[in-house]
Amino acid sequence: MKQLIACCGLDCESCDARIATVENDNELREKTAQKWSAMNNAPEITAATINCMGCRTDGAKFAYCSDYCEIRKCVYEKGFNTCGYCKELDNCPIVGPIFQNTPCAKENLLSSTTI
């Protein structure tokens, strides 16, 4: 199966939220919720909120990805599939922090535009 690259370049296929959803793994949902809640100082992230099939696929979405993600909003407003199609990619202040924390995200975006 082809990788599921999110609007920002993260690999949804390897995301714990997607894995927990696909495998209906409540233990992984709990572990992911605890990790993401602590990482984001967001106590509203609970195991019950960990349901996602991927940023750009049909099905359940993690609330942040579907409702709050500025990257995803920007991509859809510009009519792109991912940030990889945007001429502002190299200097974008919105997606830039993703590249700082996960450098392979930019590589995923660039390689996904050639598929």
Rank of each mutant, 00 (worst) to 15 (best):
C52D: 04
G54H: 08
P93K: 14
C104A: 13
E70R: 08
P103E: 01
S66N: 11
Y85N: 07
I115L: 13
I45D: 05
C15L: 08
G59L: 06
I50L: 08
I19E: 06
P93D: 11
C8N: 09
R29W: 04
F62V: 01
I94P: 00
V22F: 06
M1Q: 04
N41L: 11
P43G: 10
S112G: 00
Y68Q: 13
S112Q: 07
K2W: 00
L110C: 08
I5S: 01
E77D: 12
E77Q: 11
I45V: 14
K106G: 06
N81E: 03
L110H: 10
G9P: 13
C104W: 09
D58M: 11
C83P: 02
G54T: 09
Y76W: 05
A47S: 14
Q100N: 13
L4V: 10
E13N: 04
R29C: 14
G96R: 05
S66A: 12
P43A: 12
G9C: 11
E44W: 15
S14R: 02
C83Q: 02
E30P: 00
E107G: 05
I71T: 04
K35R: 09
T49H: 04
I5L: 01
E77V: 07
N40L: 14
A105H: 11
N51K: 15
K87Y: 06
I94E: 02
I5P: 05
C55M: 08
T113F: 10
C69A: 10
V75K: 05
S37R: 09
K78N: 12
N101Q: 11
C8V: 09
P103F: 05
K31S: 10
T113A: 13
E27H: 06
C7N: 09
T114L: 15
V95P: 02
I45Y: 12
K2N: 06
L110T: 12
Y85V: 04
G96H: 02
C92L: 04
G9V: 13
